[in-house]
Design a protein around this nucleic acid. Structure first.
Lengths: 347, 347
DNA sequence: AATAGTTATGCAAACGTTTGCATAACTATT
DNA sequence: AATAGTTATGCAAACGTTTGCATAACTATT
């Protein structure tokens, strides 16, 4: 009796040395030829490229990174990937990075400071060339990011950015966007305007509230504390609770600016169930231009926060800092233009 | 006049050799000590760990990868990151990978075969340990993935998987899920059930249509061709078009099983505008359990496709294949359990 | 006291690329 | 014909880790 064992041979990868031996050239010449180095003759370049193609040579970028100390990869830390805003930002980052020969490694902090700190350690030994970060909600001090300054690894923060140290930032102008959104309600004739606010520990939501107030002040409308409701996470259910609070007031608001679309949608639904006509009795504005804003009836007027562009700009800024080693720029701050998308909920 | 130029010194990274010199030990001992190798005495391990901590030693994982040929990183190719389904899958992958010391590098094929092919080249020279893929819509032949078999780099496909070669797969049972969804409508008393189908070039949507038909057959209901409508991308607008087609029929369907939630939502909205009561006059079932299914009124009955679990299972399967070099398993196929979430649109 | 076994450490090479410097073999200039 | 300049290539070292093998310095056994 005989037993045959077939062993599937894994192909050993072709290296520069293999090509060199095959062509009777040195590895340095091969390396330079493939890199299109001017010192190498065209004839040699052609020969080398042909042979590389023929033998299926694939450069080992780990070896290259090891030698050059450049990994051509950037790390991203987001609270959660499955939040639509972040997935759009990541998409924008990937898109720009891909075009420029970088790739992106993603980490979720899950809004945990502990995990965020762990991730910075991993990124440090992974030797990424740069990092894009949206801070976890728990993060107040950013000391764990300072090591990257020392190591010369550029960082760009977006959306939730540090306040305690000087960093590259890509943000929108929440104050102004909120101002514009509120102004829009005022121009539509609203006099009693409410606001559903986000967590006031987060600067973004603080700025939206401030922008809201500033618009009322500009147009000499009173700021009624009963019309400003606070939430923890701007969740759909919290929006329902807020809307019900409005219903219990002796007089309803005739307009509501919500700090995100989920709460805006819940206000629309709760109000409509009570027979309140939107926008006739109350006009509603959201924030973020979530897909649902185009589906809810009536369609929701909202602020497009241009998440994809935010991602692209972050990647662009980061890669510029990686590649221009201009030590005189300490930090840059970019503000992305937002736009108010007017739909039926305020028409 | 004097000019001072301050140059910010970048800290040179501490290496094993630095530690070795400092402690009068060899680099090999340091390496083994930090790796908790049994041959090293506890006293030495302690000394080494202390010194490593003191000098802020961070292992250079690029050097390590270079030496060991393991990068502890996995590549992911998805059509688009900002599609909620994929962002959930990625979240599941990242979560499992993180717990197991792997990190994930993401690429978007943008549903382009050309870009998918480019990405496989990048992944090849990036030396990832394994790859998770959802095929682009254009991909019919998978030859560009075969090189990874030769290189011994395991792959796992999810959702859109190859049919032309033997591969590890993680999928849901679309046939059965569609069958169950349709059966649910039948048990609720529907007799004239419609289906809004996805692109029939995609196996998933073919299977959903088949499952739909099989359920009707089992319960001896007629399959009415006029009630089966085909779409290209199952987009919201296409759903609106389909719903309007139903309205033009001499007799409306009393139940519709839609191949995704967007089309289901549009049917609900179009029908309601015509005064058709849901679920009383027509019950609606969707597919995928998108966030909107909990918000639309009435809340949508839908199939939870367990995207997060799909991601986790893909990562688990992949990492098992990376770590157990069991050459006798050629491929594995995993089917994730789905569940029908019954909400008001069929109650 | 000689031998065998154990414990803890070091040597040296290797992974595949890149790059400063050297140099051989030309060509152009006087 | 001598010199200077140019072109094309190779040498050798380096990046920071890991690991098979060797071995020094013990301890235990006869």
């Amino acid at each position: 009796m005989q037993t045959f064992v077939y062993i599937v041979m894994k192909n050993r990868r072709i290296t520069l040395k293999d090509l060199a031996k095959d062509l009777n050239l040195s590895a340095s010449t091969i390396s330079r030829a493939l890199d299109n180095h001017p010192a190498i003759s065209d004839a040699t370049k052609k020969k080398v490229r042909q042979k590389a193609e023929e033998l299926g040579f694939i450069p080992n970028s780990i070896a290259s990174s090891f030698r050059t100390k450049k990994t051509k990869s950037i790390g991203i830390i987001v609270p959660r990937i499955d939040i639509h805003f972040h997935s759009l930002v990541i998409s924008g980052i990937e898109n720009y990075a891909y075009k420029n020969g970088y790739n992106v490694t993603i980490f979720q902090s899950k809004d945990s400071l502990k995990r965020e700190k762990e991730i910075t350690k991993i990124l440090q030994n992974r030797m990424v060339d740069g990092i894009i970060i949206c801070l976890s909600i728990e993060t107040e001090k950013c000391d764990h990011f300072k090591k990257f300054n020392k190591l010369g690894v550029p960082m760009v923060f977006y959306d939730r950015v540090p306040t305690d140290f000087d960093a590259n930032k890509v943000v929108i102008n929440d104050f102004e966007s909120a101002f514009t959104a509120t102004e829009h309600l005022i121009k539509k004739g609203c006099k009693r305007i409410g606001h559903i606010a986000g967590n006031q520990k987060t600067n973004i939501f603080k700025a939206r509230l401030e922008g809201f107030k500033a618009a009322l002040e500009k147009y000499k409308l009173p700021i009624d504390k009963n019309l400003i409701l606070y939430t923890k996470n701007l969740g759909y259910e919290e929006g329902v609770t807020c809307a019900k609070k409005y219903l219990q007031l002796p007089k309803l608001p005739d307009g509501v600016f919500c700090a995100n679309d989920y709460t805006a949608v819940s206000v629309i639904q709760v109000f409509r169930k009570q027979g309140i006509k939107i926008p006739h009795d109350a006009a509603i504005v959201g924030f973020s231009n979530y897909p649902i804003s185009k589906i809810i009836e009536p369609n929701l007027t909202t602020v497009n926060d241009c998440a994809f562009q935010m991602g692209e700009s972050s990647a662009k800024l980061l890669i510029r800092h990686i590649e221009d080693k201009d030590d005189f720029i300490n930090s840059e701050s970019i503000t992305i233009r937002t736009e108010l998308i007017v739909r039926e909920s305020t028409k």
